[in-house]
Design a protein around this nucleic acid. Structure first.
Lengths: 128, 128
DNA sequence: CGAATGAACCTTGCAATGCAAGGTAGTCCT
DNA sequence: AGGACTACCTTGCATTGCAAGGTTCATTCG
């Protein structure tokens, strides 16, 4: 718990298109339930991922046949809804991961050659 | 030109939140105009970035005072609208880049420990 | 001259989706 | 009874990438 930098705005935007990938990745470890996923993600630094994002996303994964679910009682709380990877989900995981890496590299490539001294408009803030 | 996998869907989603960063990065090299930026980005692999995305984005950057613009005639076409980094833009570029790197690392961290043999639901597709 | 080409700009409408906020249960402890 | 924590889910909002279409300017070709 060191960094206090509000990770908010930008992170949420980037997450778009990577969130479901991350969820699949977490689920790939074995059956997991939503509430726990938020914690797993937060541990790795995806602190803004809230339940309001995750449950709809899980619903989509299920709708698309990438995960399957089953309920199971828990001690000390309501029953949990576990998600587990389907064969199609395993395929998607591989594909999406490749796509993520492709896009990530492209972006890094664009960022790579930023000059240390960017061409800033120095100018004496005066105009007509 | 080997892969025919439409880069589309996922890339566009990830781009959300990184596009303006990329634009700032391109502009950091010196005054550039929109039409050229699409080409620069495409060269680096951001092939889905179309004008429909870029002009609104540039408008936002301008509205927020991160870039300044000026027009200049071109030979063989309508006048170009050049964008150039403002001091605030230079600051934003540094900040956003750090945020991108943070989120990127977090996502990679989540992806890092995917087991080679993910726990797939093997099961004989049969259920009461 | 008129049409086509290509550079270069911009707008509208659509659809996706992350999040804040709020709500419902279930169990346990005081 | 009340609080706290687990665990689920929904609604409404705002953002934003993109496809599609349209405009302007200059050159080239018939």
């Amino acid at each position: 718990m060191h960094r206090m930098t509000a990770p908010s705005l930008r992170q949420s935007q980037i997450l778009r298109g990577a969130l479901d990938l991350c969820l699949l990745a977490v689920i790939a470890h074995g059956p997991t339930y939503g509430y726990e996923m938020t914690k797993r993600l937060a541990e790795r630094g995806l602190t803004t991922v809230a339940e309001g994002s995750i449950y709809p996303a899980l619903g989509r994964l299920q709708r698309d046949g990438l995960v399957e679910t089953f309920r199971q009682a828990s001690d000390g709380g309501p029953p949990r809804k576990y998600y587990r990877l389907s064969p199609a989900g395993a395929v998607a995981l591989v594909e999406w991961r490749a796509e993520w890496e492709g896009t990530r590299s492209a972006i890094d490539r664009v960022l790579a050659d930023i000059p240390q001294t960017p061409e800033v408009n120095i100018e004496v803030t005066r105009e007509a």
